[in-house]
């Protein structure tokens, strides 16, 4: 199969119902670490107000693509991107774009829960304060915690350290902290991979709550999770190609509504992956 086929990218776009607006549009995105191509020729329109899951085997570039959306790859030296990522009419990789501003509007939750070494209250207030929030901070903290489904568990210990929470609670604190800055898009990089099944379930419930207000993009290794939480699924795969000296290069195989990806995938490789034949 020919993954460089641009027509396929366009075909992917067609699958989005017209009623869903596009939040982020990736146009021929390729990302390199130094000279090593990690992921190539991605065309994908991520719909607004939906949960989109990026799935695929290890090394297929799904996390790389996710980090590219809010310029987190800038932290990795030697990482470069070609193509365009459009968000709200801006090309995020235009030279005039300030990555700090991008990250204010596209928040991110990481694989490892990483609360700040501050109180629970301060963990949430920090982001809002540095972003110039001037309203009622107590209210914002309470609302953010409620929306992250953590309020009940920690309303009596807001002055305690964020580290006093369990792993799952810490991750929900990180989600609350991201919500507090009122982003438009929330990226989640395998948010449940370090958590137990019960915490995972709670985070998934949180995601269902969040999608009413935000566009969510999550990377997951867990296909059941993708099936449970997402409206759309993008399946990435990695393939060894002759032109590269070493390593596999990731590419987008198929992007569609989640039920279509899981019930009637168009590509054979997608079917093989979701039925567990590889990966």
């Amino acid at each position: 199969m020919n993954y460089t086929d641009k027509a396929k990218g366009i075909e992917n776009q067609i699958d989005i119902p017209n009623s869903d607006k596009v939040a982020i549009s990736m146009q021929n995105v390729s990302i390199k670490y130094n000279s090593q191509t990690a992921v190539k020729n991605v065309f994908c329109d991520i719909p607004k107000g939906k949960v989109t899951a990026l799935i695929g085997p290890s090394g297929c570039g799904k996390s790389t693509i996710l980090r590219a959306i809010n310029r987190m790859n800038d932290l990795i030296s030697g990482c470069s991107l070609t193509g365009k990522i459009l968000f709200d009419g801006y090309d995020l990789y235009n030279k005039q774009i300030d990555p700090v501003e991008v990250r204010r509007r596209i928040g991110m939750v990481f694989q490892q829960p990483n609360p700040f070494p501050k109180t629970i209250y301060e963990n949430i207030a920090f982001g809002a304060r540095i972003n110039g929030f001037t309203g009622n901070m107590d209210e914002l903290v309470a609302n953010s915690l409620k929306r992250a489904a953590l309020w009940g568990e920690c309303k009596d210990k807001l002055k305690e350290s964020g580290y006093s929470l369990s792993g799952g609670q810490q991750q929900r604190l990180c989600i609350a902290r991201t919500i507090a800055i009122e982003p438009e898009v929330i990226l989640m990089d395998e948010p449940c991979s370090a958590l137990d099944p019960i915490s995972t379930l709670k985070i998934e419930e949180t995601m269902h709550e969040l999608k009413k207000n935000y566009t969510l993009i999550i990377v997951t290794h867990n296909m059941q999770q993708a099936l449970r939480v997402s409206d759309y699924t993008a399946f990435f795969n990695a393939e060894k190609i002759d032109s590269s000296k070493s390593g596999k290069v990731g590419y987008l195989v198929e992007f569609n509504q989640t039920n279509k990806i899981f019930n009637s995938p168009k590509q054979k490789v997608t079917k093989d992956y979701i039925t567990g034949k590889f990966g």
Binding site: M72, R103, G107, Q112, N114, G127
Partner: peptide, 24 residues
């Protein structure tokens, strides 16, 4: 991870250093 967390909520490098990494 802590640095990424701070940048992820829209902190500039200066804010990240003075308010997160240096206190840590």
């Amino acid at each position: 991870e802590l640095r990424k967390g701070a940048l992820g909520v829209g902190a500039s490098k200066f804010v990240t250093i003075t308010q997160i990494t240096l206190p840590a």
